[in-house]
Amino acid sequence: MPQDGDVMLAVIAAWSAWAGEPSLLNDNRINLAWLKTARREWDALLTAAQDERATPQGDRPETPPLQIVLQLTAVGGTPLQPVDSSPVSQEAWLEEEQRQCEATLQPTSAPTSSSEAGMKLQPSDVAHLPAPRLTIGELTALIQRHVEETDPRSEQDYRAQVQQYIAQCSEQLATAVRRAAQARLTPVRVRLTNRTNLNLRDVELRLYIPGEVDAYRTVSYASNESVTGLPTRPTPFGSARRKSIFQQAVTASIGMTTTPGLSNFPGARSLYVPDPSLPDIVNGGSATITYQLGDIRPQGHADARGVIILASAPAAPLITAT
Rank of each mutant, 00 (worst) to 15 (best):
S16W: 06
D275W: 09
R241L: 11
D84M: 00
T175K: 15
A10M: 13
P87V: 00
P236Y: 02
Q106S: 11
G137T: 14
R305Y: 11
D202C: 11
L262M: 05
P266W: 08
P61E: 04
I245G: 05
S220G: 13
L70Y: 05
S85G: 01
D151T: 08
Q98M: 14
A17G: 06
T186H: 07
L318Q: 09
L262W: 02
E96T: 09
P152L: 04
D27Q: 05
P152G: 03
D51S: 15
I289M: 06
T135L: 11
A311S: 09
A181N: 08
R53F: 04
Q156N: 14
A176E: 03
E204T: 12
Q182Y: 04
G261P: 04
P22R: 15
I296H: 01
P231L: 10
T258A: 13
W15G: 07
T258P: 00
R305I: 11
W42I: 03
T218E: 10
T218K: 04
L134H: 03
P61G: 01
A141S: 13
P231K: 12
L207I: 14
A302T: 04
L9W: 02
M256R: 14
M1T: 11
R305V: 14
F237G: 03
K120A: 00
E62G: 15
A17H: 05
M256N: 04
N194I: 08
S286Y: 15
N194V: 06
G76V: 07
I136S: 15
L70W: 06
D125L: 02
R99P: 03
P123D: 01
V190Q: 04
D43Y: 07
M119E: 13
S253Y: 12
M256W: 13
L192W: 01
V162N: 06
A74H: 08
V177K: 02
A13G: 09
L142N: 11
P111H: 06
D84R: 00
I30H: 03
I136T: 12
Q100V: 07
R40W: 08
W93C: 00
Q172C: 02
S223L: 13
S220K: 05
A304G: 07
E155Y: 11
S239Y: 10
R60V: 07
D6I: 13
L310V: 11
Q71V: 02
L198S: 04
V147I: 12
L139N: 13
Q98S: 14
T55H: 00
L46M: 14
S115A: 15
W18I: 14
A49D: 09
A141F: 03
A268L: 08
G229I: 08
L205A: 13
Y272N: 00
A10C: 04
Y272K: 03
T288A: 04
E155R: 15
A222Y: 12
F237W: 04
V190E: 05
R195D: 05
R53S: 10
D151F: 09
A160F: 14
T186G: 04
I308A: 10
I296E: 01
Q144V: 09
A131E: 14
